[in-house]
């Protein structure tokens, strides 16, 4: 199988306190720790495992600024055969559809049997995979947590639905699948692995190379006006004090609620 995996570089929300910049136009970018979007890392692992079983190649593609090369290389160190970086200021401010249009152009540069995306990224949208499938006119399945081969032209897949139940489907290839976390255990990537791929070439493509001139802010139907921190209700009553004092207060509350048996 020839597999394309779409990967995005995002601020790692487990590592960072995300806050809004003073003009509200962006989040505060200083001191952010970036990594590959959690869901995309599972997608790359899954692609590698499929190719280990069936043969073929895994290509990772990322749209971003020059910094995105670092995650493309990381996924190559994991085992992706090649990587492509798409970077062009003209693509900034793309909505989901704009991103999907750019990825479609990237997908059309070779003949792929399968395209994997993450189920969602840092914007919590979960839109790019489904849009890409619709633009390519390929079938799509979201939140995939199992992939097996059924026959030459069909995959048997599981979709994770509410309550952790699983919806089994047969889907014709070529197709686009969005991958849910937990589908596999992504392999560890160490410094040595990264060094091994350091000399490999990562082609860089722009709008001219891809022939895409209808993405970016001007073409976007959906645009973010600003970020803000909502004025919510009271929120939690925050306890204050030293570690000892905090623990005493928590024990007092738990006892009062009958939570200590």
């Amino acid at each position: 199988m020839e597999i394309l995996v779409c990967v995005k570089r995002v601020p790692d929300s487990a590592e960072n306190e995300i806050s809004v910049s003073s003009d509200g136009r962006d989040i505060k970018r200083e001191d952010l720790v970036y990594s590959v979007n959690e869901w995309d890392n599972y997608a790359v692992e899954e692609a590698i495992q499929i190719v280990e079983r069936e043969g073929g190649n895994v290509t990772v593609v990322s749209i971003g600024d020059a910094g995105a090369e670092e995650i493309v290389r990381r996924e190559m160190a994991m085992g992706a055969n090649q990587g492509v970086l798409i970077t062009d200021p003209a693509f900034e401010g793309s909505d989901g559809l704009g991103t999907a249009k750019v990825l479609k152009a990237a997908a059309n540069r070779a003949k792929y049997d399968l395209i994997l995306t993450g189920a969602q990224a840092d914007d919590g949208a979960g839109q790019v995979g489904g849009m890409l499938a619709a633009l390519l006119d390929w079938p799509y399945a979201s939140l995939v947590n199992r992939i097996e081969r059924k026959d030459d032209a069909t995959l048997r897949i599981g979709r994770e639905i509410e309550g952790g139940n699983q919806e089994i489907n047969d889907i014709d290839t070529p197709c686009v699948l969005s991958i849910q976390t937990g589908i596999n255990e992504p392999r560890y990537v160490g410094i040595r692995g990264i060094r091994k791929v350091a000399s490999l070439e990562v082609p860089v493509l722009d709008s001219a190379a891809l022939g895409v001139n209808d993405a970016g802010a001007a073409a976007a139907k959906v645009r973010r006006v600003d970020y803000f921190v909502p004025e919510l209700g009271a929120g939690a009553e925050m306890l204050e004090g030293s570690t000892e004092e905090l623990a005493d207060k928590v024990v007092g509350l738990l006892k009062a609620k009958g939570a200590i048996k």
Binding site: G96, A125, G130, L135, S142, V222
Partner: peptide
Amino acid sequence: HNTFGLDLGPGLSVKLGAAYVPD
């Protein structure tokens, strides 16, 4: 915005030529 909407919605917006606003 659940596992059904995530499955149907993005592609539907493309096919209808409509904007998509998730979640």
